[in-house]
Nucleic acid binder design. Structure first.
Length: 585
RNA sequence: GCGCCCGUAGCUCAGUGGAUAGAGCGCUUGCCUCCGGAGCAAGAAGUCGCAUGUUCGAAUCAUGCCGGGCGCGCCA
């Protein structure tokens, strides 16, 4: 009954799902349900290690009531799983609750530990090369708080997609073309001359600082000043972002789209226009060139070239997306700030007009970040003009806290970030709580490797806690596992205590978490998971002495394995978020 | 007016069809002879904005309202 999906590299939970699928097919006589049945951890421990709704999906196919189907499934599963299964029971409207045997847990733990940090390294359904554009802050100022969120989200999403198995190309689009560049140059020059900046010019303190670094800024042409100023700003942004653990494979110049590349006779913009014209997607009206974006659901058609002959910003973006397409990525993802959400429809339309598949481009909008200080709206500095600068944020609360707080929430919800909370370097702060768990485990592992044994308490010391664990975890298991905790000598292997079981089950969910988070473009799920895992480890730490005198050798080995696997998963998870996983704190 | 996002515990937020809705902070009460107390445990706290509908089953899906944020340029 084993199938090709039963590959030896599939993680334990995936193999369990495959077996469930086999059982379903056995019951339906080969017909597949419209969607795969779920195999999840139930909310209540009394419902076993895993629960599946499979029986409730099949009444139409099988022609029987869910509880009846569940009974048949349980028979099939018992057959398939043999000694890996401790107990299977039908509950509620037709749920099937599974309790795995210690043998299965042992094997699973061995796999998790052996895989280490690569435990969740993914096997996505379809592996595809992804072009990811994010931040794309204007080069006329420092990276601001909106850019910080885009940077945190984009860099974490990139890591997450890579962990899941997709090759990712990270790109920053530099808007070094158009009106704003001239305006920036004029602002720089005004500052260099000690004059007021022009109307609608750039007024932040940084303008004078940048101007001071440009030789002869007061007397050279505005063009030259602008070019040098942009270069300095881009370099500064790059430094800010690197400090924020955000790097790019390429910084793509908008300006480069308006001139022929080496050896070419036409510019990328011209090339893109030619494609659009061939497709019959453009037209002229009142002297301007339009793209018929309404064909693809936009509110109105958009101007590519103004009646005075100058291309719009949108023209650049059309050319940019044409370039992305011709570079051969299977998927294009743009991460944009909330103020650009009105732009989504036209970019999608342009992508389609260029011949792209609508499903091959995604525009993700990150919502605003509101900063507070003890409940008051915070205004951090004038360095960025009217915006809060990324550098100020990092100076204030540190990279780890900044990234955590920006990443712990879904990208499409507005964040109210209280700096006083984020600054707090204690366990009140979730990021340090998770880091602390990691450091603590590494410390234990270090001692464990050195063969240390602490004289503290024995395995029996956890007896009180096991009592409560029993009540929570094993109403169906007659206490066979939980009551055996410390006393049975151990030559034949001691049973799993509830806290060990819970921790291992949490670890086994890691590949699912990665897959789900990657598929949903939701790195914040990783943060949620890590916090729960750290809590789970704390419960384990409380109930299960690892190095104490009197802990049987096999139990000690198992607990060291659990520690090792937990540390690796936490490190991998924090790695996705770009948060440090310290050895000690 | 139209479009996008959001509305879940006092606060900040998880949870996109399953069983009794969760976490962190804050609050109350306990716990330092104990592998890292930057810790642990217990407790109080919710009409999941409102209404109707779909479903065996809805915080989750649909429709309509209400409230908040943002956007609707031949700006970028």
């Amino acid at each position: 009954m084993a199938t090709v999906t039963d590959a030896p590299t599939a993680p334990p939970l995936q193999r369990l799902r495959d077996l469930l699928d086999d059982a379903v097919l056995a019951v339906t006589g080969g017909e597949r349900p419209p969607s795969s049945p779920a195999l999840d951890r139930p909310k209540q421990a009394a419902h076993g290690d895993f629960a599946t709704n499979a029986a409730m999906m099949l009444p139409k196919i099988v022609g029987a009531a869910p509880p009846m189907i569940a009974e048949r499934l349980s028979v099939a599963l018992t057959e398939h799983l043999g000694g890996d299964l401790d107990d299977v029971s039908v509950a509620g409207p037709g749920f099937l609750n599974l309790r795995m045997s210690d043998r299965w847990l042992d094997a699973a733990l061995a796999e998790v530990e052996a895989a280490g940090r690569s435990f969740a390294t993914g096997t996505p359904g379809t592996r595809e090369s992804i072009h990811l554009e994010f931040v794309s802050n204007n080069p006329t100022g420092p990276v601001h708080i909106g850019g910080a969120r885009g940077a945190a989200f984009g860099s974490a999403l990139a890591s997450l997609l890579e962990l899941h198995g997709h090759p990712v190309h990270r790109e920053y689009y530099v808007n070094d073309f158009g009106n704003q560049v001239q305006l920036f140059g004029a602002s720089l020059q005004a500052r260099a001359r000690g004059e007021e900046v022009p109307e609608d010019g750039y007024r932040g303190d940084y303008v004078a600082e940048v101007a001071a670094r440009i030789p002869d800024a007061a007397t050279r042409s505005v063009d030259e000043v602008a070019t040098e100023g942009i270069a300095l700003m881009v370099a500064q942004q790059r430094a800010s972002l690197e400090r924020f653990r955000t790097t790019f494979d390429r910084w793509f110049s908008e300006r480069s789209l308006h001139a022929p590349a080496d050896g070419a006779t036409s510019s990328p913009v011209d090339d893109a226009f030619a494609v659009l014209a061939e497709q019959g997607r453009t037209y002229e009206q009142e002297g301007a060139l339009y793209l018929r974006t309404t064909d693809s659901g936009d509110d109105k058609d958009r101007v590519l070239v103004r009646s005075d002959g100058r291309p719009t910003y949108f023209a650049s973006d059309v050319a940019y997306h044409h370039d992305k397409r011709t570079r051969g990525f299977a998927r294009v993802i743009d991460v944009l700030g909330a103020d650009h959400h009105g732009y989504v429809a036209r970019v999608e339309a342009a992508f389609e007009a260029l011949g792209g598949d609508r499903d091959a481009i995604e525009l993700l909008i990150t919502q605003f970040v509101n900063l507070f200080e003890n409940g008051e709206r915070a205004k951090m500095s004038k360095r960025a003009g009217e915006f809060v600068a990324l550098d100020d944020l990092v100076d204030d609360i540190g990279v780890d806290a900044a990234r955590w707080y920006l990443l712990a929430r879904s990208h499409d919800t507005t964040i109210d970030l209280d700096l006083a909370d984020a600054r707090e370097q204690s366990a009140e702060n979730p990021v340090y709580y998770v880091q602390y768990a990691h450091a603590r485990i590494r410390s234990i592992l270090q001692r464990g490797r050195d063969g240390e044994v602490t004289g503290a308490r024995t395995g029996e010391g956890a007896g009180d806690d096991e009592g409560s664990a029993d009540a929570v975890g094993a109403t169906d298991g007659v206490g066979d596992a939980a009551t055996a905790g410390g006393g049975d000598g151990a030559t034949t292997g001691s049973a799993y205590v509830a806290a060990e079981r819970e921790l291992l089950l949490a670890l086994l969910a890691w590949p699912d978490e990665v897959a789900e988070a990657a598929t949903r473009r939701a790195p914040h799920r990783i943060a949620t998971y890590l916090l729960a895992l750290a809590r789970q480890y704390s419960a384990f730490y409380r109930d299960c002495p690892v190095l104490a005198e009197g802990v049987p050798a096999d139990v000690r080995a198992r607990r060291l394995s659990l520690c090792s696997a937990t540390a690796d998963v936490i490190a991998a998870g924090l790695g996705v978020l770009g948060v440090d996983a310290p050895e000690r704190m």
